[in-house]
Design a protein around this nucleic acid. Structure first.
Lengths: 208, 208
DNA sequence: TATATCTTTGACTGTTTGATTAAACTTATT
DNA sequence: AATAAGTTTAATCAAACAGTCAAAGATATA
């Protein structure tokens, strides 16, 4: 592990790796210490205990993901370009940080109230993002649809295959190499899938 | 807990509840014993250890989910009806068994090789399901698309919102009641979304 | 250089937890 | 009724683990 960083940074980097892969229950303070190349007691010196170290990591990770999403969807582009960019970004991002989203989902699943407070402290306003999507759906495609459903659809089509990768591989006996191809294909397939779906609403506007 | 069942059944039922919610690492043998209303040593008497009890539960759960999916997608209906039925079934099912899919995904994530063997022993043939989808895409909609992408899209649109429910609620500050409405809406929205997307391909067949 | 403060370590503690065991209890078999 | 086999329990064990502490080491301050 890199020696140029200060201890706090080294601990956080190690903690990130371990917590992301194993979650709170699966992670061991000893393993984090080993990975950071220092004594276990130092973790408690810099971060009071396991919980607060975990919270730090969660905070960081969540903020990073959420702000990246906001950044993309609040930028100045057509909605379809944003979708294209988001999928490309995300599918590239996870090849380096495979477990981030699953980590967030599981953490939030284990202690929803506790982490919800932490999230509220960061002054993110994801509602703005929804309003922006609503506006663009109307102005660019003439659609009056609940933007939350569209946003969740985008996330589902992008994120789910990554999270469920081992499930898909087990079910259909797919090799790692074929999975790489599969994800590469999705960078094209998902945006057209969404575009087709949205254009379909234009003719028959009787829905939501 | 119901007294009419035999001990094995009682243990399995309790183990299911606890493992589904907390995963392997989060689960405690004592908690399972308490929930089953019996001494902890009995769990070891009937199931050698925690691992094999977990495997039993995983096996059961996975088989149940996989066979239900196969059943729907191998039945005699139009593809669009199957999609409609699947979404309805799944969104109703999880209101009673909230954590099944996330449980499977996490388990497969923690020990992929080990569980893949277990899965292979069940003689499921999900590839048949894919072939069936491919056939129906061609015959009913004149489309020559990789059925795996379509299947993953269906799963993503259906399963992701359920798995990510706490994430969505935290991000957009949505109450439990509004979430119920949201899921109820998706029973209609998702099938039309998919239908629109597929119909879009019919005109412009230059894609995959 | 002497002293105070900050950093790091190894040894240790108390608790939790999965697993074992020997004895008690129950049920079936003769 | 006597015996054997199967079932259940309380007590206990050993390992894993988060967290503590006193002392050693390093660094800054005077």
């Amino acid at each position: 592990m890199d020696n140029r960083q200060n201890p706090e940074e080294k601990i956080l980097e190690a903690a990130r790796l371990v917590f992301h892969q194993k979650g709170f229950n699966g992670a061991r303070m000893q393993e984090i210490a080993d990975l950071a190349g220092m004594n276990k007691a130092l973790l408690h010196y810099y971060f009071r205990n396991k919980e607060s170290l975990f919270e730090k990591v969660f905070n960081e990770t969540f903020a990073q993901m959420a702000s990246k999403m906001s950044e993309i969807f609040l930028s100045e582009m057509t909605l379809m370009s944003k979708i294209q960019i988001f999928i490309n970004f995300y599918l590239n991002f996870i090849s380096r940080h495979s477990f981030v989203v699953q980590f967030i989902i599981n953490a939030l699943h284990d202690k929803p109230e506790q982490l919800r407070e932490i999230i509220l402290k960061q002054n993110l306003v994801p509602e703005l993002m929804l309003e922006q999507i609503r506006k663009q759906l109307r102005e660019e495609m003439g659609l009056d649809i609940d933007p939350l459903h569209i946003y969740v659809n985008i996330l589902g089509l992008t994120v789910f295959p990554v999270v469920a990768k081992p499930l898909i591989q087990s079910l259909f006996r797919i090799t790692d190499e074929r999975m790489d191809v599969f994800f590469e294909q999705r960078k094209k397939i998902v945006p057209t899938f969404i575009e087709n779906a949205l254009k379909g609403y234009e003719k028959d506007k009787s829905l939501l």
